[in-house]
Amino acid sequence: MTDVKNLEELFQAKIDAEQKIEPKDWMPDAYRKNLIRQISQHAHSEVVGMLPEGNWITRAPSLKRKAILLAKVQDEAGHGLYLYSAVETMGTSREQTIDDLLSGKAKYSSIFNYPTLSWADIGAIGWLVDGAAIMNQVMLCRTSYGPYARAMVRICKEESFHQRQGYEIMAVLAKGSPEQKEMAQDALNRWWWPSLMMFGPTDANSPHSEQSMKWKIKRQSNDELRQTFIDRTVQQAEVIGLSIPDPDLKWNEETQHYDWGEIDWTEFNNVVAGNGPCNKERLAARNKAHNDGAWVREAALAYAAKKAKRKAA
């Protein structure tokens, strides 16, 4: 009989050989737990992420922008579903996963606990928040768990429209009236730092990272991804004439990267702990939607049972 140690070696050898792990393969318990946590958090982020944007669907400045925003929010629902499906392949029920979100036990990306105060925030979210998410998601297309990697490929194909529509909103506002430009700059000021926090704690303070790298769940560190995001985004801000709200931001000729200021980790920890501006509102909205939809789920089942009975008769 093969013992666990041997199985673990075989498992790691598969990973080292760049073979994907599939649902029915043996995997260490910790790998399964780690992925269930990560993929479900990711799924919840897609779903909760619909709330700040949904806030502006009825108030989009034109029919075109409204149609685009609707399509984007619908994509986010789809992304949540791809990911929930991936979690389910690990043997945990959909019901359990959703319950963990609704009870507050599971986390989602803290960025969605900030409010969308103006239309420019929709631009900033697409450009910065989706932009930061893409950095992470492109890496995850090569993650070691097959169903997660396949979901990410699908998501990445769709996500680039999200970032581009956001950047376009910002570009248009920045070229508009002084008030519009100011609105765009204000949105950038408020979303910049929370977007950098999306990459998670610094490598020195990231307890799960080393194991995740060994299992090839992650392939780049938080700090690497954050730096690439900053390097790319600063240039994009320059193109549209907006300024990054960081007095310490400076090009470093030697490293060929931007040096930048300090993230306020106290704020980060506060929002993660549930004390952000919208944590309670977001969770309440999800719970309300779930409870208000209960009769629909029941009715659909009753209808399906009735139809099946009629067919059998």
């Binding site: 579903l81 499906s85 389910e88 959909r94 979901a151 699908r154 659909a300 209808y303 399906a304 139809k307």
Partner: peptide, 12 residues
């Protein structure tokens, strides 16, 4: 195969 989803009946 592209993935999975929950639904009450085949049409849904």
């Amino acid at each position: 195969h592209v993935g999975s989803l929950h639904a009450a009946d085949p049409q849904m």
